[in-house]
Amino acid sequence: MIAVDDLNVTFHNGGRSIHAVQGISFNVAAGETFGIVGESGSGKSTVLKAIAGLVPSTSSVLEVDGRPAARRRSRAERRLLQLVFQDPYASLHPRQTVDGILREPLVIHGVADIDDKVMAAIADVGLLPMHRFRYPHQLSGGQRQRVAIARALILRPPVLLLDEPTSALDVSIQAEILNLLANLRQSYSLTCILVSHDLAVVAHLCNRIAIMQLGKLVEIISAADLRSGTVTADYTRELIAASRGFTRAPSQNQVVLS
């Protein structure tokens, strides 16, 4: 469904250029959920933005649904994939109601039966009709993220890109959103790429997981490998150990204060 070969993204900032993504390659099969984990500065979100065409990139292959994905995309090509952003407080237009936000993609693509589709989308993500005419500031973080998911899915794209969709949310709300995503993925047979810094979240939702560090791909492992710790790279091992919590190692260089 998604083919990426030798993807590179370079940002130019004044005189300096930053090679944010360096030669990443992977494939995602239809119906699969592919995870990308890494720490800040690993370039994981940039990979997602490059696939979405939001940042300029170079690659030998970048295909979505068998079609090359250029930076400039036609309206029809835009319908192939949508993105859910990290911060539900920044991803919704502050002066538009939920209705206006969900209506926008339908109007752009000239879809019929807009009202019915908006109502269906609201119900799909577990919101109520009473939420339809609220402004984002009248919704909680979890509700906002539901609206963002509804907006992403309202055009029924086969591919959904998720950029840290729950990292701004509380644990209990995160559970609701992750369950919702799992259900929607099932009912719409979505192909997903999930980017996160949280190994447990990625292991929960994904089949295969790419580990990234400083713009490079470290390795691609299965969720089962991640859980059992059967990994080859030291960095992955370190990341897993750190994610399991704090370990009170016998301190060698102890702090001495005057």
Partner: peptide, 20 residues
Amino acid sequence: RALVAAAPSLDIQRTELATV
């Protein structure tokens, strides 16, 4: 208990996360 069960874990594979 609900909070603990709602968090995805590396040790336990859950098909669905508990909600509070």
